[in-house]
């Protein structure tokens, strides 16, 4: 049996090995980006944007942190410690926006700049950045679906869950577009819940194909919906007869894009989102005003819409969705 001293010494060495001690120049601006979960490919991509920002701007230290797992308590603790550290600005993608109201209020009281993303119902933020208008995003899908369908037929929509605010907004946006522009397109079985599980999406899609054998249009909500729908379509051999569009990630959806089961996906590049959050944070730190129609220098954010948020802050929206289909999905590494 190992002696206690050996084990303790070993553990201490392991701890020491993991330690990196960043030295910080006092007059640099420190912007810390806090994400939902470290290690998820989405946020690894976002970190690229954060790093890029730091490289592009002298006098700014930009870094990203995130909890090891999707736990609002851990994210809150990290932010609380950042506030105690008195950093200059915090950019957050909240796990659970409502859990952060208190700590962000205190952050602002301490004079820390707060910027958020994907949290347009959060009150205690100075700027909430959204990649696009959710209604428009939904309409964008519907537009493509309608064109593919030839302006007539049946279509349906999926959501991660009825509690996922953005997914519901996309589905509703799509439905409104269809109603306004294509009276010959009929909506059936709206907002099927997949609970972010590709298997559930698959099962639901099969059900719908059974119930409505002549259905043509599918709009996906969570990023795995198109995967489940695509699988069901492939199984039924209906690649050419259906039009499937929705949120998706290139690498995950690639095989279905190739086979034609999924006709197109769209997403917003988290790298750009991270970069833009940091731009906004720096602008606030420098005292610059953010105005409607501004060009932030990043594709998709060249003409941002600024509106009042639920609290005292503003909401900045871009038009930063990226369309991807069989021709270009390989260009994206995530």
């Amino acid at each position: 049996m190992l002696r206690r001293s050996t084990i303790l010494a070993g553990a201490a060495a392991v701890f020491a090995a993991g330690i990196a001690s960043p030295a910080l120049a006092q007059d640099e601006q420190e912007i810390v980006t806090v994400v939902k979960v470290a290690g998820e490919s989405w946020f690894i991509r976002m970190e690229e944007g954060v790093q890029q920002f730091g490289e592009d701007h002298e006098g700014v230290t930009a870094r990203q942190v995130g909890p090891g797992r999707a736990d609002a308590a851990q994210q809150t603790a990290m932010i609380q410690d950042l506030v105690a550290q008195n950093v200059d600005a915090i950019a957050i993608v909240p796990m659970d926006p409502s859990a952060l109201e208190g700590v962000l209020r205190r952050a602002q009281q301490r004079g820390i700049t707060v910027v958020t993303h994907e949290a347009d119902n959060l009150q205690n933020t100075q700027v909430d950045m959204e990649a696009f208008d959710n209604k428009e995003f939904g309409a964008h899908f519907a537009e493509q679906i309608a064109e593919c369908m030839g302006g007539e037929g049946k279509f349906t929509s999926f959501v991660g869950s009825l509690g996922s605010l953005t997914h519901v907004q996309w589905a509703d946006g799509g439905a409104e577009y269809m109603e306004a522009n294509h009276p010959d397109i009929e909506l059936v079985s709206p907002k099927n819940e997949s609970f972010n599980d590709a298997n559930n999406a698959y099962e639901a899609a099969r059900e719908i194909l059974r119930a409505h054998p002549d259905i043509k249009g599918f709009q996906g909500g969570s990023a795995i919906d198109v995967i489940g729908i695509g699988r069901a379509v492939e199984e039924a051999g209906l690649e050419d007869e259906t039009c499937v569009y929705g949120l998706g990630l290139p690498q995950d959806s690639g095989q279905y894009l190739e086979s034609g089961a999924v006709d197109g996906i769209a997403f917003w590049d988290p790298k750009d989102a991270g970069y833009v959050m940091n731009i906004l944070a720096k602008m606030l730190l420098d005292g610059e005003e953010i105005t409607d129609g501004m060009d932030l220098g990043v594709p998709g954010y060249e003409n941002v819409a600024v509106s009042q948020g639920p609290g005292e802050g503003i909401i900045v929206r871009g038009q930063a969705w990226v369309d991807v289909d069989a021709s270009n999905w390989k260009d994206y590494p995530f």
Partner: peptide
């Protein structure tokens, strides 16, 4: 410890790893 790790900007995975190592250490002793 948790706050120290956050102040030092250590990856949160290290924190999980540290908790695991600590638990094993203390159970062993």
């Amino acid at each position: 410890l948790s706050s120290l790790f956050n102040f030092m900007a250590l990856s949160n995975f290290f924190r999980d790893f540290a908790w695991g190592v600590l638990l094993l250490m203390f159970l062993a002793f």
